[in-house]
Design a protein around this nucleic acid. Structure first.
Length: 559
RNA sequence: UGGGUUAUGGUGUAAAGGUAGCACAACAGAUUUUGAUUCUGUUUGUCUAGGUUCGAAUCCUAGUAACCCAACCA
């Protein structure tokens, strides 16, 4: 190729990167500062990962920085437990914040801003009930109306606001509102509430305050205090931008700018913190880190790698259009990563006994197997004997079309061991297969096969004499439908009743006795697994991270 | 019946008036001591109707659809 295709030469930018590059190019900023601003009232989910990767990624890409700022202006829903989990999740994803900040640290400054606004005649204390405020606000199609409190004097407003701060009033008795325009087409500009009274203990400021700023009078101001250049949030905040800019202008403070992108939606799950909290509180899952949840702590426990989530966030892109991402894309990113990292081991989830009739009963043969396709993963020794456990589903009494596993008379290879021929099988009264008898071909030993025989199927196995019992937890999607919110009725009606299957007596190869929590394993032919935190020295517990792609399952489905 | 935002294959996302590309998914085949991985190939798209232009996903006009806004939540 002598000529370069300009399409390949220029990597495409998302719309926020375009804005930043233009700002930098024009010299509007020398460097950028972004922020990730979670409210500590729940655990972070995969949707937050998109925002984290965006904000931190931009900081990294353009040589700027990113702050972590807890948006803690509502003491009744916020807790330190959430602060800690959020920090853990961000670190796990692999990002480092420049500064750890709290909106609550700005309460004094914010109070001063409010006084400033009152002095300018741009804010007033309103005695109305919340019902009255709502009634006077109008609707999207009808303008709101001014009330009697709107015309209070600056002096009176100052006095009342001071008294609000001093705790002279009960919750809900008074609020401070901006004086903008009750007939504005943007509902948020109809004299938005700036401060409300809440006699509540705050997780950081304790009992110092009984008035707390609203989101609109905290977020943009915090951005400004920190000199955030690009304040990135999700689409539903678009109408807030007008107010964001108005307040910055009237307060005459550093002009941060807000840009909005579309939040992540994904099939077979829900992404709202409120709904996730509901699933936790109502016991549909065991907690925020239940591996069926879309939270980062759940993905981590389930065995997802941070790299796979970052790749995913990179692949889904950033735009302003509503999106609905296939879960399969996330799983693709995961498998791609795990395929390189996972140690291959053998585990039988649904064991049935296989007896090799022509193998010495007392003998244990040691075989060497690779730990994975990449040589750097090393090798290990396997024990092989007369009696083995194999997967029940790898034997078919009456083989289906294109079946190339075990069946009466058929040959398969035992992974890393020998080729065997199925001679007979035994059933109990219930009609269940209890024993499969085979003969092995001594010359077919893995690595030194001189038999010249080629078989189509290879199956995994565990020596019965050396097997270790383990609990294995198989997870499936939490909901049975792609969009639980799109269904009639409650989203919880679509919960998958089979989202968790616990296998108590799986048998795994003995090397797994020393399984490490930080390792990823591929149970050959069954999927990727990791050690669960419930695992103990006496009892191994594994989580299935994700299945392998299964072409045979598709084949079966077709017929 | 107000204001705002967005429309490109099944799902995402590029193309800044000049070849509609990439990824996932789906399908077909090759390889395979994991029915995995890997490799090859195929199907499917510019919301609609007009207009400008040699040429329109892109510009203009008029529609249509989806989403957001009436919390003392963020």
């Amino acid at each position: 190729m002598s000529e370069e295709n300009p399409r390949d030469a220029v990597p495409s930018l998302n719309f926020i990167e375009e804005i930043i590059e233009e700002d930098l190019h024009k010299g509007k900023y020398k460097t950028i500062l972004t922020r990730f601003p979670p409210e500590p009232n729940g655990y972070l989910h995969i949707g937050h990962a998109k925002a984290i990767c965006l904000n931190f990624g931009l900081g990294l890409k353009y040589g700027g920085k990113t702050n972590l700022r807890f948006d803690d202006t509502n003491p009744v829903t916020e807790e330190t437990e959430y602060v800690d989990s959020i920090k853990d999740d961000i670190r796990w994803l692999g990002f480092t914040w420049a500064e750890e900040l709290y909106t609550s640290d700005y309460f004094d400054t914010l109070y001063g801003y409010a006084v400033n606004l009152i002095n300018k005649g741009l804010a007033y204390v309103d005695d109305s009930t919340s019902e009255d405020i709502a009634a006077m606000k109008g609707t999207p199609t009808e303008p709101g109306r001014d009330n009697q409190y709107r015309s209070r004097s600056v002096e009176e407003n100052l006095r009342l606001f001071t008294e609000m701060k001093a705790g002279k009033f009960k919750d809900g008795e008074k609020v401070l509102r901006a004086k903008i325009d009750m007939a504005h087409t943007n509902m948020l500009m109809r004299d938005p509430i700036l401060y409300r009274i809440k006699h509540a203990h705050h997780h950081r400021s304790g009992d110092k305050w009984c008035i707390y700023p609203m989101y609109d009078f905290a977020h943009g101001q915090s951005d400004s205090i920190e000199n955030i250049t690009h304040s990135i949030c999700t689409l539903e905040f678009i109408p807030h931008r007008e107010l964001y800019d108005w307040l910055i202008e009237k307060l005459e403070i550093f002009p941060s700018h807000q840009y909005e992108f579309a939040r992540l939606n994904m099939t077979y799950t829900v992404m709202s913190k409120r709904k996730l909290l509901q699933l936790v509180n109502e016991g549909h899952v065991t907690g925020w880190d239940d591996p069926r949840m879309p939270t980062l702590s759940a993905f981590r426990r389930k065995g997802y790698t941070p790299e796979s989530i970052r790749t995913f966030c990179d692949k889904i892109g950033v735009a302003k259009r509503e999106n609905f991402i296939d879960l399969s894309l996330l799983e693709f990113c995961l498998r791609e990563d795990l395929n390189q990292k996972a140690l291959r081991v053998m585990a039988v989830l649904d064991p049935v006994k296989l007896i090799i009739d022509n193998f010495d009963a007392g003998l244990t043969e040691e075989l060497v197997s690779e730990n994975g396709p990449d040589e750097s993963l090393g090798k290990r020794t396997l024990q092989f004997g007369k009696e083995l456990w194999i997967e029940r589903e790898d034997f078919m009494e009456e083989p289906a079309k294109k079946w190339f596993r075990l069946a009466p008379g058929s040959m398969v290879r035992l992974k890393s061991a020998y080729i065997i021929t199925c001679e007979s099988f035994v059933k109990n009264e219930a009609g269940q297969v209890t024993e499969i008898h085979c003969t092995y071909i001594p010359e077919s030993r893995s690595g030194s096969d001189t038999s010249g025989i080629h078989v189509k199927g290879t199956i995994h196995w565990v020596s019965a004499a050396h097997a270790v019992t383990a609990e294995v937890r198989l997870y499936d999607r939490l909901f049975t439908v792609e969009n639980p919110l799109g269904e009639e009725g409650d989203f919880k009606d679509s919960i998958n009743p089979n989202s968790l299957q616990i296998i108590n007596d799986a048998v795994v190869e003995p090397s797994l006795k020393h399984a490490l929590a930080e390792n990823r394993y591929q149970f050959i032919r069954k999927g990727y697994f990791c050690l669960d935190k419930d695992s103990t020295a006496d009892k191994l517990v594994f989580n299935r991270t994700v299945t392998l792609k299964d072409a045979w399952a598709k084949e079966v489905k077709k017929n």
